[in-house]
């Protein structure tokens, strides 16, 4: 334990409204803490810079899963365990339940939240490629206003987001449009369980008459933020799955990713494996 906990403040306002008021007040800045599986690690390591925290973990307003025939809305406080248990997610959004199942350990899944995963904005985060593939929308709330934005525009750079200091991520909405799609998700981590991904892909595709009619590919650990591989998608659009298209797709993937060397892996490895995963998906798509 490398921090002195008595230097930190934590409050637990009873309602969402009260939390938003605190965030908007000039007493801050306050940092929200949900499951704490990021922030408490930072505290333990002595690198939690913020001294004032506001707990949102207890807010039932943020922990819900609401389904309509057209949409699924997830409160930002939904835990990975909640995601894994939900039958609609299991059938309609299997990329997300799979990502939840390989996030950390059971204990981490019981505490860690989808909202925390999004706002923490790690390029290696597991559930974010799936959200990109599903074209999720985010609802952000503050004492002043509520705004809904496409998730694809949320990340600005390495661990940078458009979230304002007085805002909370309220919920994530997905369209239930993907029943006809083939789903593919694979995480390549440092080991089988409890691993940070070296590279991960979550993808959806629909074929018609042997041609790729629609394809969406989300990826982790290939740039400074989770990304959608739009150039690769363009190359594949309306194409049959042939050696040539696969080669072109691999080249496109390489051109739009910028992986790095770090203590977990190498840039070359990440790029090659990402392309292999894509190829594996395309092979599986073949009629």
């Amino acid at each position: 334990m490398r921090s002195n906990p008595s230097h930190y403040e934590l409050t637990t306002p009873a309602t969402l409204e009260a939390v938003l008021d605190i965030l908007a007040s000039d007493l801050g800045p306050y940092t929200p803490i949900a499951g704490g599986t990021e922030l408490m690690v930072a505290l333990g390591a002595g690198r939690l810079a913020t001294r004032k925290l506001v707990s949102i973990n207890h807010l039932q307003e943020l922990r819900f899963i609401a389904t309509t025939p057209e949409t699924l809305t997830l409160g930002s406080g939904t835990t990975f365990t909640d995601l894994r248990k939900d039958p609609v997610i299991a059938t309609d959004f299997s990329l997300l339940s799979q990502a939840a199942s390989w996030t950390g350990s059971i204990a981490n899944q019981n505490r860690g939240t989808l909202g925390g995963n999004i706002v923490n904005a790690s390029p290696a985060a597991d559930s974010l490629p799936a959200l990109l593939a599903y074209e999720a929308e985010l609802t952000l709330v503050s004492a002043r206003a509520t705004r809904t934005i496409p998730y694809a525009g949320f990340h600005l750079g390495y661990k940078k987001t458009i979230l304002r200091p007085d805002e909370l991520l309220h919920s994530i909405t997905l369209k239930r449009d993907f029943r006809e799609y083939a789903h593919y998700a694979r995480k390549v981590g440092t080991r089988n369980a409890q691993a940070i991904s070296k590279v991960a892909i979550a993808a959806l595709a629909r074929l018609k008459d042997g041609l790729i009619q629609d394809i969406r590919i989300g990826a982790a650990s290939l740039r400074d933020r989770p990304i959608r591989l739009t150039a690769t998608e363009r190359v594949l659009q309306n194409q049959p799955i042939t050696r040539e298209t696969i080669a072109a797709a691999r080249a496109a993937l390489t051109s739009e990713t910028q992986p790095i060397d770090d203590i977990r892996s190498t840039a070359k490895y990440r790029a090659a494996v990402a392309a292999n995963l894509l190829e594996e998906f395309l092979h599986q798509l073949k009629p």
């Binding site: 290696a124 390495y158 060397d261 770090d262 203590i263 070359k268 790029a271 090659a272």
Partner: peptide, 16 residues
């Protein structure tokens, strides 16, 4: 040929 054409250190993931 699996060589990535542009692999550059753009961000540090050590604190990810």
């Amino acid at each position: 040929d699996l060589e990535p054409t542009n692999a550059g250190p753009y961000f540090s993931e050590t604190t990810a």
